[in-house]
Amino acid sequence: MTAYIVRRLFATLPVMAVVALFVFFLLRFAPGDPAAIIAGEDATAEAIAAVRAKLGLDRPMVEQFFVWTLQLLQGDMGVSIFSNLAVTRLISQRLEPTVALTLSTLFVAVALAIPIGVVAAWKARKLIDRLVMGFAVLGFAMPVFVLAYVLIYFFAVQWQLLPVQGYKPISEGLWPFAESLILPSVALGVTYMALIARITRASMLEVLAQDYIRTANAKGLATDRVLLLHALKNAAVPIVTVIGIGIALLISGVVITETVFNIPGLGRLTVDAVLKRDYPVVQGLILVFAGAKVLVNLVIDISYAFLDPRIRY
């Protein structure tokens, strides 16, 4: 297993190199010029050219790539063209809100979706199953931002139970921290919950039709033991796979959720950096997201071995 993990970690290096290459050149080929944005509304073409020269953006693209790669190999992601702050500082400032939002969403979604998926499978084709599936279709179809605005309107503006926007770090207290995450987690989690609930139901239905489940029932085992110990464990591999895929969905969902709820996380940093053509920041962020995705996939692959003893690496 250790050898497998080490091999997989080394395999991430070429993946990251390809990502770095693509993101660097795609950004440069995309229209837009940070120098023009910096120089501002009243700047002449000459003034823009002067800013571009000072930023080094007028140098050949290959030279710029070479300089960036060398910096990267030394652990330096460069500095933001606009704020002059190190990209690593900008990313670390924004990491906590995104991690907190992702984990709370994951927690809410998994904690609710798996039980309702199991219940839906257990009560297949009955009213509760249809309700769960109806919720799943609705949850999957409803855009995150629509749900977000609806939640804000009722829970924040009308009933004033929760804040409209912003993020409170855990250092400011447990309740302020939790309060700032409830609405965003629910808004972001519903799609994810719907996805996991559907897969849990489908996977459970397949397992519940197996002979050993019938045997367990015939032996007179309690329903909860049959469902949780016998069926759910064997249905877990596809569910865990979907949770892994869902984390990638969460990353894209975080961009929208962070914008609507004004959470200063990596998603908003990405949108702002792309709109401003802040090349070093976008490059750094894409590498971080790609690295996170590769690591999540690795964790999911490793978890298979624990869930299904037949799988060996």
Partner: peptide
């Protein structure tokens, strides 16, 4: 100077006193 990029969120935040 808080930056809220979404105008609807900014409006709700003002109404809510944030």
């Amino acid at each position: 100077l808080v930056w809220i990029s979404d105008p609807q969120t900014a409006m709700s935040a003002l109404i809510n006193g944030e």
